[in-house]
Amino acid sequence: MNAKDAPGMASLFGDGMREAFPVEKLTRIVDGLLEAKGRIESSSRVEPPQDENEGFYRFRTERGEWRVELHVDPSGKVSGLKFNEPPAPAPPVVTSTVSLGLPYRGQWLVHWGGDRREVNAHVDNPSQRRAVDLVVVGPDGKTHRTDGRTNKDYHAYGREVLAVADGVVVAAVDGVQENEPGEENPYLVPGNMVILKHTDHLYSLYAHLQPTKLRVKVGARVKKAAVLGLCGNSGNSTEPHLHFQLQDGPRLEDSWGIEAVFDDVTVAHEKKTGRVMHYTFLKGDLVGNPGNAL
C-alpha cells in the first residue's frame, strides 16, 4: 500500500476479490486511503481470531489509524479486506445520581463486581463495565444447599428481584427456558430480563430471571423496591444468580455502563461488618439493607 502497488496487492487476492476490485478501482482506493491518513507506519493484531482464516489489525499511520479486518481463503488468498475507522474512545465512567436501593432483600454476595478485571469479568464490555453478578450463600459459604444439580438447590433461586429506583419498564423479555446448572445459553445472553428507565441517561437492567415469573410489562411505571421478577438461571448463566447493571441508554449494544452507588447498606467482608452510606459493589462483599430480612 505504501508503494501504491495496486497490481502487487491484487496478486494476493482470490478470484472473487480480483473481480470485485480490478486494478484500476483498487488504485483509486489505495490512493484515497493514503491521502486520508498517510503512510502506514506499523501494524498490530487487536483481537484474537475466531478462526485461522481471519485477523483483525490496528494500522498506525502518519495521521491517525485504521482498524483492518482481513479474511483469507483455504489457499491463503485474500477473500475479504475492510478498512474501518477506529472506535471512539470510551467516555469516563460516571456514577449514578439518583437515590438507589439494592435490587434484592436480605444479604447477597458480590461474585463479580468492581473496576478491574481481577474482580469483575464484565469491565471490558462497554455496557457492562460496572455490571455485577450477585449470588446468595449459606452458612458454609456455598451457593447451593446440597449437590447443586438443580436450580431449586441454589439459595438465590426464586428470590424476588427489586427495582433500585422509580422508573418505567422499557424492555421485558420472558419465556426463555432455564438452563440446568453448569450449562449456559450464549444465544440469548441476558435470558429473561427487565430494563427500567429512571432518567433520560440512566437505565437499570436485571438479567437471568425465571421464565413466566415477570411481574411487570413494557410501559408500566414502577416504584423503588417494586418486585420485577424472580431470580433464575436463564441466558448465559451457569447457576441461579442476578446480573445487574446501570447504563446510559436502553439498548445493551450501544450504551455505556454506569457505576451504581447505593444509599445506606451493610457490608461484611473479611470478617468486618459495617454500615456504608454510599456504596459501590465489590467482589467478595456480603451486602444487605439495614434491617432487611431474607
Rank of each mutant, 00 (worst) to 15 (best):
M1R: 03
D5R: 03
D5N: 13
A20M: 14
F21G: 12
P22E: 15
V30C: 02
E47Q: 13
E47N: 06
N53M: 14
E54Q: 15
E54G: 12
V72S: 06
V72N: 08
P74H: 15
P74R: 15
K77Y: 10
L81G: 11
L81W: 15
K82T: 14
V94M: 14
S99I: 15
P103N: 13
Y104M: 12
W112S: 14
G113H: 11
N120I: 02
N125T: 14
Q128N: 07
A131Y: 03
D133Y: 00
D133K: 00
D140W: 00
H144G: 00
R145A: 01
T146R: 00
T150P: 00
K152T: 01
D153Q: 00
H155F: 12
R159N: 11
E160K: 15
V168N: 13
V169G: 05
A172R: 07
V173D: 09
P186L: 06
V189H: 04
H201T: 10
H201Y: 05
L205T: 11
L209G: 08
L209P: 08
Q210S: 02
Q210C: 05
T212F: 08
V216E: 09
K217Q: 15
K224L: 12
A225T: 15
A226K: 08
L230Q: 08
G232D: 00
N233R: 01
N233V: 01
S234T: 04
Q247C: 07
E253G: 07
S255P: 10
I258V: 14
D264I: 03
D264C: 07
T266V: 11
V267K: 01
G274K: 03
D285K: 02
G288A: 07
N289V: 09
